[in-house]
Design a protein around this nucleic acid. Structure first.
Lengths: 133, 133
DNA sequence: ATCAAATAGGACTACACAAGGCGTATATAG
DNA sequence: CTATATACGCCTTGTGTAGTCCTATTTGAT
């Protein structure tokens, strides 16, 4: 409950790593070995971060990843939404299909939850990756 | 990911309900029917809230629940921790057994996550149930 | 041209947890 | 004594997370 996924953690660690080596190209192998992260899992995380234009990939031998923008311009919120794909909400009201909630029409706490949701988004958006390095 | 459990939602709705009827005694049946919440699930939520001294229970016929303290003195954080039982953390570092994290010793983002964790707790603690009524 | 190293990405399994259902015991007002 | 409540444990099901495995593609170096 209220937990960040491992994928997000791995993503943050990887981004932090690349930033810490002055944005030199880094490979999945290198990062996964250094932080003891399952290679395949990290690989897919990196692919999502690439698609989300947070990092840039270089294929083939001598390939790897660099940051697509400065660490100060990447927020934890960016990382979360790119990796999770779907809209992240603390309740179903704030996800793709709000009506799917079993108590949708009778719910009396949509507004207060919305306020909380808004505050959480603020917390995640204001925390930049540069603060992690 | 980062979702509140249904139990917490049900708990908040129930508490809001009792507050909205001026703390008159309310039964599980009444609440579950009004908001279309599964009776058994709500019943267990109420039991936890009772054990956590957020509401007071009256057994037997004509029994039910009232708030144990004023709505202004119950925070969403209180409700969450009482219902979830365990310490709620966005990552394993902030739960009961931090060392269980698969990347515990190599993790480079414990501090920043701690900062986020702290901010989240603030969001949940500052939101009182009275704001929901 | 070939090989090795790297990313890209789909399919599948194992497991934990959330959500709910069911059965029974206990308390109490009338 | 009975009807109406809460108290509480056990079990089932569904969903989502985490991880593994396999194959395709790209590209630098020999």
């Amino acid at each position: 409950m209220l937990k960040l996924s491992k994928k997000v953690e791995y993503g943050l660690i990887a981004i932090r790593h690349i930033a810490s080596v002055n944005n030199h190209i880094s490979t999945v192998k290198e990062i996964s070995e250094k932080y003891i992260i399952p290679v395949d899992v990290l690989a897919k995380v990196m692919q999502k971060l690439t698609k989300g234009k947070i990092i840039t990939s270089y294929q083939g031998a001598m390939g790897g990843y660099t940051l697509a923008r400065k660490a100060e311009e990447i927020s934890v919120m960016d990382v979360i939404s790119v990796i999770e794909g779907t809209q992240v909400g603390i309740a179903q009201c704030f996800s793709e299909v709000p009506e799917n909630c079993s108590i949708y029409t009778n719910c009396t706490i949509k507004n207060p939850l919305g306020k909380i949701q808004h505050n959480l988004e603020h917390v995640f958006s204001s925390m930049k990756v540069s603060e992690i390095v």
